[in-house]
Amino acid sequence: MSKNAIIAGLVVFVATALFPFWFNIGGSNAAPEIELSERAKAARYCVLEKYDMRAEHMSLLDEWRDSVVRDADRLYKGTNGKSFNMSLSTGEDSCLGCHTDKEKFCDRCHNFVSVAPYCWECHTTPEEVTR
């Protein structure tokens, strides 16, 4: 009796544990292309190098928000010697001020990896305001 029960339980467990794999079988898993806005292309530099930015932008933003809200420091001078306004969405020199198309630059990747950062709940994008 217990032998069958155990085996059945194991099957259910393995099937559940492997859910993400079998659920996505057959689907396309090509990484999305992100598009730089004209402004971002023209600038040719960002706060960090491209690959650092890809990996670290969330912790960078986390650091920034503490710095702005808690220490009142709002100006960031990067390792590349350039200065940035530490802001996600306010003003020309904020993240979205340069990366003007949130859908093509942020959302594509976030959707692909199934993350839904709650930043956007409050930090509205400029075009959302005008819309």
Binding site: T90, E121, C122
Partner: peptide, 25 residues
């Protein structure tokens, strides 16, 4: 009319006057 220079808030948090800290900065 949402002012893009200052974030809105989400439900469930407390808020109050911050002496326009963002403007002072």
């Amino acid at each position: 009319e949402i002012n893009p220079d200052f974030p809105t808030r989400s439900k469930g948090v407390v808020e109050k006057c911050n002496l326009c800290a963002g403007r002072l900065a």
